[in-house]
Each structure stands twice: as C-alpha cells, then as structure tokens.
C-alpha cells in the first residue's frame, strides 16, 4: 500500500514539473502581494475620501484622526480600565455559561428523563436573542455587574448546552458496546467513553460561544455601564467623538479576533487524538 502511495506522489510531481507548478507559484506570489497591500490600500483610500471634502469629516474622520483618538484613549488610562472591564465580563460569563452548558448538556444527553424535563424549555428559550432580555435584565439587576454577566452567561449557555447534548447523544454506540465487553462498569461509562466521545462537539460549541459572548457583551454594555469598550463607544457617540467611536470598534474587532484565535489554538490541543 505504501508503494502505491509513493508512486502516486511521483506521478503528481511529474505532472507538476511539466508546467503546472510555475504557474501556480506565480499565482501564489501574486496573492501574497495583494494580501499584503489590502490593509494599506484600504486605509489610504479612506484617508483620501475623508479629506477630499466629499464627506463630512466630523462624521467620517480619516484614519489619522482615529489613531490620534486611540492614542489619547490609551494615554488617559481609560483604555486599560475599559479593556479589563469588558474582558472580565466576557471571560467570567463565558466560563460560567460554558460550565453550566456542559453540565446540563451531559445531563440531558445522558438521561432521557432529564432531557424530557428540560429540553422543551430550553428549545423555547434558546432562539430568543439575548439582546431581547436587556429590558428585563435592567429591571431585575439594575445597572449592576450581575446583570451584564447574566446576559453573557445566557448567550453562551444555550450554544454550549445544545452542542454538548448532541455530542453526548452522538457518541458511537459501538464504542459503548466495546467498552461493556471489556468490563467497563456502566457507572464509569460517562467518564471513560461518553465525555471523550462528546469532546469534539463540546469544543465546537465553545468556539461558537466565543463570538456569541462578544455579541452579548455589546448588548450588556449598551444597556448601561460605567466602563467597558462598548460603553466608551457609546459615550464617544454622545459627544460626537467619531474618531473615538471608530477606534473603539477597531479595538473590539481586534480583541474578539484574538480571542477566537487563542481559543482555536486551545481547541486543537484539547482534542489531542486528531
């Protein structure tokens, strides 16, 4: 079988050598070049349009003004406070919602009685966008930190619950039969087989929940806060500091991008056998 593979590789190499390779290499180099130019080109164009007089510079400030606003934001020390406040909400909400989701997903996935009890309720609550809960959260929690955590937890929980539930249900019955034949006690089946079998699904659910936690963070901070990236965006909007608004958006984008990358790197290590 190995011989077959190497022969196939050889054929592949030869056809490449016959002319396809230089072409694809040139194309790849062009792509890299275009990719490197993408951002500078976009920012340059933005600067030009802003300063051309065709648009209102107050409402559509050029990147240089945005950069100055961001620098000022950082220098004033407010940025660090905002960043920490937002990160605290996102991570705490993510961890609490994720743990609850995994726990209940295992329970509903593994025990039909629990599923009959909770799944109908969860399926009704799950499609309601977390933002719709802002009014009632303000009634319940006022402007406290608990209300903001509640929103993030709510958003994260259902995604993680559903993927864990499905993961547990989809665990290969054959693995369970094999484990039974090898003398695995039924009460150890959860830790030996089910949890690990569901792990790939749980990780996918958690990864989706990373971006959901940022959506809900926006709703939570718009509902009234005293610090936070989105809170700062809102304040800047009220003061017509458009540069600061755009800087805030860029910061939010960067943070959630970094969070997603970090999590996908972690996820790859979690499912170690792939």
């Amino acid at each position: 079988m190995q011989e077959g593979t190497s022969a196939r590789q050889e054929i592949a190499l030869r056809t490449d050598g016959r002319g396809r390779r230089p072409d694809s290499a040139r194309l790849r180099r062009l792509n890299i070049l275009v990719g490197a130019l993408s951002l500078p080109l976009f920012i340059g164009l933005w600067e030009l349009v802003s300063r051309s007089g065709a648009v209102n510079m107050v409402l559509f400030p050029p990147p240089t003004v945005v950069a100055a606003a961001v620098l000022e934001w950082i220098r004033s020390g407010q940025f660090l406070g905002d960043l920490l406040a937002s990160l605290f909400r996102v991570t705490t909400g993510f961890i609490v919602g994720g743990l609850l989701g995994i726990l209940l997903g295992i329970l509903t996935g593994q025990f039909p009685v629990v599923s009959s009890l909770l799944s109908p309720l969860f399926h009704i609550l799950r499609p309601i966008p977390p933002i719709a809960f802002v009014p009632i959260v303000i009634l319940w929690f006022g402007l406290s930190e608990a209300g903001k955590l509640f929103l993030v937890v709510w958003g994260v929980f259902f995604t993680v619950w559903l993927s864990t539930h499905i993961g547990v249900q989809k665990v290969d019955r054959g693995l369970i039969r094999a484990a039974l034949m090898l003398g695995t006690p039924r009460r150890q089946m959860l830790q030996e087989i089910v949890l690990l079998g569901a792990l790939p699904y749980i990780v996918v659910g958690l990864r989706t929940a990373v971006s959901i936690s940022f959506y809900t963070l926006v709703a939570a901070e718009l509902a009234g806060a005293f610090a936070g990236i989105v809170y700062r965006i809102e304040i800047a909007q009220q003061n017509l500091q458009t540069g600061q608004v755009m800087g805030g958006l860029a910061a939010l984008g960067l943070i959630s991008f970094a969070a997603d990358r970090l999590f996908s790197a972690l996820a790859e290590r979690t499912v170690w056998w792939r």
Partner: peptide, 11 residues
C-alpha cells in the same frame, strides 16, 4: 468480543 468495526477508542 471483536466486532465488524474495530470500535477502538479514538482518544
């Protein structure tokens, strides 16, 4: 027991 599928624990 050996099944038609190996059913090895992938992890």
């Amino acid at each position: 027991m050996v099944f038609q599928q190996p059913h090895l624990f992938p992890w």
